[in-house]
Design a protein around this nucleic acid. Structure first.
Length: 728
DNA sequence: TTGTTCCAGCTTTTT
DNA sequence: GCTGGAACAA
């Protein structure tokens, strides 16, 4: 047996973690210390040396990308196919469990997963049905509240009654939302985790089965786990001490979305026989970069304590640039990138990191002008595009008629003459009888209360879905998708010149067919469901994977959050200003400030060779000129590892552009200020203002004398070209 | 149904 | 100051 391949590439600490006997283990892995390597080699070790079957391995990550990478590296190292191992995201694994045990999880076999956007739509519809004003109950806040409850493992029925009116109402919404999802067979992301936890908790036979099966459980990025994820891990591994977690408390940057750093402490409490191993040798960055990182993070209180070191030398000094304004900052960065390229540097090795997405604009513009290829992370993803989601909604409704969210999405897309009135009627019936929209629609037609036109349109829609479902029977997956897209009329709908980027949308739909064609149906593992259902789940759970390949040689632009886990030879950390980074919202909360500091630590440790930090002395923010102070984090970097870069000669002085005001408030023709006019619908009123010219000319009128039986319309702007006004 | 105006909001993101 | 969504007029 050749174990040198597994242990030779490791340093002492790594080897200790990899070869330790089976026990609970916490590996505190600093940035760039070979965290993934330890996980991969640990699993390889267990299979090869401890003769553990791949079947007994469970490895959980947060992103599909990380899961994929882990799988690939294990396959490479062991030279065996790794599909017997369960390697996936928390959500992916939970999903698989729920599919296998749908019945015990009290879910319909064809349940579907909805993403956050779908969830928001369901909530909006619910608020509407409950007659709650959206400005008083902001859907996003409701969504946040529901997800936060689920992340904590709290069901509506568990919540203790309170006197607080707000809490009561929220609870009522939560309850209604749960009911709605159950009825439609829909499961949101948080629900996947919560349900999977309940499945194991309430079904001892199921729990036993998996506890027997998974002899070793591995977790990546453990510091990012939330309450329910940890509880789930706990169920699977308690009493067996077979939990191997890797994480870094200093890189915990997702507290705001429920990640519980406390889980690291809980782990140490719950697994009495655990071992802690720290990985502190860094293989990524120069000594100076690490010095800066160590210094910054040491300001935080309550760390587990870790200090990164390298034996590869100090390297170049960090550079700090004080830009005149945000324009100048962008010029500077582009200038340096140009120099880098001039020295045969590759664009792929360069990243511009910022705190908030809005900051990317300046850099995009300047890079564009300079003709340097770039890529901005975090844009709209393929499966999130409206046309794709619509097409998928057709497919979803085909496999599950109760999917109300999909039903609503496509009932009149493309437009087929089913208006608000008809849809409202369907909703009313559905709600009254507690049935799905689909059934309610059939009911509505049978009642013969609809106008002939509406009735035809509606039965046309129902018929369409039935037809496509029948016709697609027995077809290949991609043929099903193709047929659906064609029959639904989506292609023609988007081909009409009227729709923005219609051409592109059609192309995307065609791309969806390709995606279906290349979708690999892992029948061995997923015998529990049809191919179409698996494809739909894939679309919501693993869509991120489809995102652009980094084959092109581009400069990478992204937020600090999305940079976690990546590395670049040359890094620009821009916008180092109080109020931006650390962000305004975290300034008055010590805990959040520490998270910002960890974020800074993450940013700095992305750099391998060279790190530039910059701030602007003046910045346009929300339309206002601001004069921010340099970020406190800059002061936390030891002076001796940083050099300041002088202003260059060509710095732009501020140019105050004087915009000519092009409002000519001349009263032309027969309308004058104070003129009394009449309108067919709004009655009589007085002209308050006139502006614009020609076709754009419009008037502001105070309608204070309404037609009989109506309320006065008040102040309105009307286009003169359209409004029929009588001069009185 | 469509095009426009109005208005709030304005960190970070994966699944 | 820009942007996305809602509200409104036609």
């Amino acid at each position: 047996m050749d174990i040198t391949k597994i242990i030779d590439p490791l340093n002492d600490a790594q080897r200790k973690a990899v070869t330790a006997p089976s026990q609970a283990m916490l590996v505190l892995a600093g940035a760039g210390s070979g965290k993934t390597r330890v996980l991969v080699h640990r699993i390889a070790w267990q299979i090869q040396v401890e003769n553990l079957s791949p079947h007994s391995i469970l490895a959980v990550t947060f992103t599909n990308k990380a899961a994929k990478e882990m799988r690939n590296r294990i396959e490479e190292l062991l030279d065996i196919p790794a599909h017997a191992m369960w390697i996936g995201t928390f959500h992916g694994i939970a999903h698989r469990l729920l599919r296998r045990h749908a019945k015990q999880a009290k879910l319909p076999e064809t349940f579907q997963v909805m993403d956050s956007a779908d969830q928001l739509r369901v909530i909006k519809r619910l608020l509407n049905a409950l007659n709650l004003a959206e400005d008083k109950w902001p859907p996003r806040q409701v969504q946040w509240h529901i997800n936060a409850q689920k992340d904590e493992g709290v069901r509506a029925k568990h919540t203790i009654e309170t006197r607080d009116i707000y809490q009561q109402q929220m609870l009522a919404i939560y309850r209604a939302y749960e009911q709605q999802c159950d009825q439609a067979g829909l499961v949101d992301f948080a629900e996947l985790l919560l349900r999977a936890h309940e499945l194991l908790r309430d079904n001892p036979d199921v729990l036993d089965f998996y506890r027997q099966r998974f002899r070793q459980v591995h977790v990546d990025e453990f510091q990012d786990t939330n309450t329910i994820q940890y509880a789930w891990l706990r169920l699977l591994t308690r009493d067996s001490d077979n939990l191997f977690v890797v994480g870094d408390d200093d890189q915990s940057i997702y507290g705001w979305r429920g990640a519980k750093i406390e889980n690291i402490y809980n782990f140490q409490r719950h697994y009495a026989n655990h071992q802690v191993i720290k990985l502190e040798q860094n293989y990524r960055s120069t000594g100076n970069i690490l010095k800066a990182a160590n210094n910054i993070i040491s300001v935080n209180e309550g760390r587990m304590g870790k200090e990164l070191w390298t034996d590869s030398g100090a390297g170049e000094l960090l550079s700090l640039y004080a830009a005149f304004n945000e324009q100048d900052e962008a010029y500077f960065v582009v200038e340096r990138i140009r120099a880098w390229i001039g020295k045969n540097g590759s664009c792929n090795d360069v990243a511009i990191l910022y705190r908030s997405n809005a900051q990317s604009r300046q850099f995009e513009e300047k890079l564009m002008t300079a003709g340097i290829p770039y890529r901005v992370y975090g844009g709209l993803r393929f499966f999130d595009r409206a046309e794709i989601k619509t097409a998928l909604a057709y497919l979803r409704l085909m496999t599950n008629r109760d999917d109300d969210a999909s039903f609503e999405r496509i009932i009149n897309t493309p437009t087929r003459g089913i208006g608000t009135k008809t849809i409202d009627d369907i909703r009313a019936i559905a709600q009254e009888h507690g049935i799905s929209l689909w059934t309610a629609a059939i009911d509505l037609i049978n009642r013969r209360q609809l106008s002939a036109r509406a009735s035809n349109a509606l039965s046309g829609f129902l018929h369409l879905i039935k037809c496509v479902t029948e016709q697609s029977e027995g077809l290949e997956l991609y043929e099903k998708v193709k047929l659906t897209i064609e029959k639904s009329g989506l292609i023609e709908f988007y081909q009409k010149a009227k729709i923005d980027n219609g051409e592109e949308k059609v192309e995307n739909l065609e791309e969806l067919v390709n995606a279906a064609r290349s979708f690999v149906f892992d029948q061995e593992n997923e015998e529990y469901l049809g191919e179409l259902d698996m494809f739909l789940s894939f679309a919501t759970l693993e869509s991120g994977d489809m995102q652009g390949d980094d084959f092109d040689d581009c400069v990478q632009l992204m937020t600090l959050h999305s940079a976690k886990g990546l590395e670049f030879k040359l890094v620009f950390l821009v916008g180092m200003e109080e109020g931006l980074f650390p962000s305004q919202q975290s300034l008055d909360d010590a805990g959040r400030l520490e998270e910002e500091r960890r974020l800074c630590y993450v940013g700095i440790t992305r750099a391998m060779q060279q790190l530039y930090l910059s701030y602007a002395e003046s910045r346009r923010l929300y339309g206002r000129e601001t004069y921010p102070r340099p970020s406190r984090f800059l002061r936390e970097i030891p002076a001796e590892c940083m050099q300041e870069i002088r202003m260059r000669s060509h710095v732009n002085q501020p140019v105050t552009t004087i915009k000519p005001k092009k409002e000519s408030l001349q009263a032309i023709g027969r309308y004058k200020h104070g003129q009394r006019v009449g309108h067919a619908k709004f009655g009589e009123g007085i002209i308050l203002q006139i502006e614009g010219e020609g076709a754009q000319e419009r008037v502001q009128i105070n309608f204070n004398c309404a037609p009989k039986g109506e309320k006065a319309a008040g102040v309105k702007w009307l286009m003169l070209a359209y409004a029929k006004l009588d001069v009185l």
